[in-house]
């Protein structure tokens, strides 16, 4: 406890970096997964290929992906952009299936009614399908959020600072208090992300309250 209090400034700084490294990819991943999922939903032949294909990306070990990024992007080794891009890939891997499932969860009669009233494909997506898919997509976002918070810790191994540094440093210098602080801070952050997703979901679905 004293260790944590003594290093509060450092922890806060690492936590903020952790939030950005896990959170920005979560949003970018969602923005990318929506059109991909929509495409898979509209072209049923594509759906299995896209869902399985993007899903496979998640099986690439994170360390390998972090190391590959500078080669593929031409960035510097220590550039946090490497982590952001890699985490975005993981998020997309988790969310394409979620978006497809979400769009499939829209009741057929509601979708038919939207078409029959003259909503074009894009308006239907934006005004009807996505809003109704929010509960399913939010469930997937909660998994992706917690997964991101956890995976980002690995970035310490390639020298990008965040809460994972407490784990590597605590391990290397044998400071149990630092290790425990690292674990608790990561857990707490995962919880905050989870609650944030649930909060946004509630805001977006006032119609489910009744």
């Amino acid at each position: 406890m004293t260790w944590a209090l003594d290093h509060a400034g450092q922890i806060a700084d690492l936590a903020w970096r952790h939030v950005l490294l896990a959170g920005i990819p979560l949003l970018l991943g969602l923005v990318l997964a929506i059109p991909l999922g929509w495409l898979a939903h509209r072209v049923p032949v594509l759906a299995p290929v896209m869902v399985v294909g993007t899903g496979l990306l998640y099986t690439i070990p994170s360390l390998a992906l972090f190391i590959l990024m500078p080669l593929m992007l031409g960035t510097r080794i220590l550039d946090p952009v490497n982590v952001v891009v890699a985490m975005t890939i993981y998020t997309v891997a988790l969310l394409v299936r979620t978006v497809v499932d979400g769009l499939r969860s829209v009741p057929g009669d509601v979708d038919a009614a939207a078409t029959a009233m003259g909503l074009g494909a894009l308006r239907r997506l934006w005004q009807v399908q996505l809003p109704l898919a929010v509960p399913v997509i939010a469930a997937g976002m909660r998994v992706a959020a917690v997964s991101n918070v956890s995976i980002v810790s690995i970035a310490s191994l390639i020298g990008v600072a965040q809460l994972g540094d407490l784990l590597t440093d605590g391990y290397n210098r044998n400071i149990p208090a630092e290790l425990i602080t690292g674990i608790l801070a990561t857990l707490l952050l995962a919880l905050v992300f989870d609650r944030a997703v649930v909060g946004v979901e509630r805001l977006l679905t006032p119609w489910r309250a009744s």
Binding site: P107, D109, V110, A112, A113, A114, A116, V128, P131, L132, T205, W207
Partner: peptide, 10 residues
Amino acid sequence: IQQGGLFPHH
């Protein structure tokens, strides 16, 4: 349509 097909979120 049957059951109205109303938009539940509107």
